[in-house]
């Protein structure tokens, strides 16, 4: 089979992978909306200490948050999904982003670690490069977020 055909197969609109090792996923919620991400893209979860606004033109990157001795940029996932932010307790999901550590404000429910068969993951290439597909859990479809490259493609498109 030609390489081009292989590439085309890899980017079909939707595919299921029922074979291979199970995938470790983290399920968390942002402003009430549940979503999932691959565990290897997450560095940790710490308490949310409040963000410092930065006058920014970068889509969804508009603040910094204190962490230990430094500051991390914050990606506003709630704004991306047009979810009204809920006041009150929150947690900070620290992401292993390609540009360096990135913080995301998530709901106070502690994220759950789930080992799932790959057949429950539906990978697709859609309009949103920040979404890798969906994870079907108990009849619920959770978007799988590409945390490691979050905002990279959309910034380039906007720029």
């Amino acid at each position: 089979m030609l390489r081009g055909q292989l590439r085309k197969q890899g980017t079909t609109a939707r595919r299921s992978t029922g074979e291979g090792r199970p995938q470790h996923m983290v399920v968390f919620a942002v402003a009430g909306k549940r979503m999932a991400a691959r565990t290897e893209e997450i560095a940790g979860v710490v308490s949310w200490t409040g963000a410092i606004p930065v006058p920014s033109e970068t889509p969804f990157v508009t603040s910094l948050v204190r962490q230990q001795e430094g500051c991390l940029p914050v990606f506003d996932l709630a704004a991306k999904f047009k979810q009204p932010i809920r006041e009150g307790e929150s947690l900070c999901l620290v992401v292993k982003h390609v540009d360096g550590p990135l913080a995301i404000r998530i709901d106070a429910e502690v994220p759950s670690l789930q080992t799932v068969p790959r057949s429950s993951l539906q990978c697709h290439i859609g309009d949103d490069p920040d979404c890798a597909g969906v994870y079907v859990a108990g009849g619920e479809q959770l978007p799988i977020i590409n945390l490691a490259t979050l905002g990279v493609s959309s910034s380039r498109q906007a720029g």
């Binding site: 920014s56 970068t58 500051c71 991390l72 990606f75 540009d99 360096g100 990135l102 720029g159």
Partner: peptide
């Protein structure tokens, strides 16, 4: 003094 993280890509 820290530079703006590279995640900030705009006019800021």
């Amino acid at each position: 003094i820290h530079p703006l993280p590279p995640h900030f890509r705009g006019g800021e």
